[in-house]
């Protein structure tokens, strides 16, 4: 009774992936097997700290005996499964997912997409020229069930101006692929603040506060749990957004150092992302037992007192 509980030993199952026999722990996913086997599997909505949402479908694989393709990120391993990760069917769906997303969302800063497009031969431009960006608030005002006949000359997109309604972070929903990670992280899976939701339906779905009120009017507590999980740069700290916007972004002059938050006694690990001796972003290791990648407003944004212009030294303000 006084001893530390040990993990229950898991049974292993045998399955075949691309003709190779693999053994995997029961309870794991096909994605786990693929990754362990070095089978490169694209993912967008998958997050290591979140329950898979299966929303993007870019990780689909062919599982013999099932009618449709299955998402590797959430499909559990079972004895005797026969899986194909690079069949024509798989390649087709992955290509189309990349084309459908690429044609409707700005994926310019999403890690991996350029290489996947090349690998699957995806051509997001094939649906025609992109429609003009929506005006601010236009997509948020969409009425569910109201149909608008498409303009045959262009392909619809989610392009819209970024929302800059608070000093700490920017919501650039033209880059949002609706992976739901921010909603889940702000909601029941971590922060439990529920400041944001998926609103509307179909192509009009958007991540929104209630009635699209500004973040300062919403329940947001600025822990940045959403920023930490966003895979596409749709959510960025203002400091990083501004570096990118002004063209000052210089990855070669950046470094990241992990330390501990200076505020309360919980001991959250902070990874400070620094360019030219200025912190532009704070994250936390997603595999750390204290934070699981999450922080509060103080940890995420409370670093300003050590930023240039540096606080007053004996000889006056310093840089």
């Amino acid at each position: 009774m006084t001893t530390q509980p040990v993990e229950v030993a898991r049974r292993t199952v045998a399955l075949t992936v691309d003709g190779q026999l693999h053994h995997a722990a029961e309870g794991g996913t096909l994605l786990d097997v693929c990754r362990a086997a070095g089978v490169d599997t694209p993912t967008l909505c998958y997050g290591d700290t979140l329950t898979p949402r299966n929303a993007c479908r870019v990780c689909v694989v062919e599982l013999e005996g099932t009618r449709t393709l299955v998402p590797a990120c959430s499909r559990k391993v079972e004895e005797g499964q026969v899986v194909h990760t690079d069949s024509e069917r798989v390649r087709h769906s992955r290509k189309l997912v990349l084309e459908l997303l690429g044609s409707s969302v700005d994926l310019s800063v999403t890690d991996g997409v350029a290489a996947w497009n090349e690998r699957y031969g995806a051509d997001p431009a094939r649906f025609g020229p992109a429609a003009a960006p929506a005006a601010a608030g236009e997509r948020d005002a969409a009425v569910t069930g109201e149909h608008h006949l498409p303009d045959p000359a262009v392909a619809a997109t989610v392009a819209q101006p970024p929302k800059e309604d608070n000093p700490l972070y920017v919501r650039d929903y033209g880059k949002c692929i609706l992976c739901y990670k921010c909603v889940d992280a702000c909601g029941e899976q971590w922060q439990n603040t529920f400041a944001i939701t998926a609103a509307g339906r179909g192509f009009s779905v958007r991540i929104a506060t209630e009635f699209d009120v500004s973040l300062p009017d919403s329940a947001c507590v600025y822990g940045g749990t959403c920023l930490a999980v966003c895979p596409t740069g749709a959510l960025l700290p203002t400091a990083e957004f501004d570096l990118r916007r002004t063209g000052a972004w210089a990855p070669e002059r950046q470094h990241a150092t992990t330390t501990v938050c200076p505020y309360c006694g919980v001991g959250c690990n902070l990874t400070l992302h620094v360019q030219d001796n200025e912190i532009f972003k704070v994250s936390s290791p997603s595999d750390h037992s204290v934070t699981h990648g999450n922080l509060c407003i103080k940890g995420r944004f409370g670093y300003v007192h050590v930023q240039p212009p540096k606080r007053r030294g004996p000889d006056g303000p310093d840089r």
Binding site: H255, T257, T258, T259, V260, V266, V274, I279, V290
Partner: peptide, 24 residues
């Protein structure tokens, strides 16, 4: 600033000793 301009350790509420590191 001991938490980001210097090296050392701190200890949290679950008695976990952790490293602080110089980042700036």
């Amino acid at each position: 600033a001991a938490w980001c301009e210097a090296e050392g350790t701190v200890t949290n509420s679950e008695r976990r000793v952790q490293r602080v590191r110089k980042a700036v």
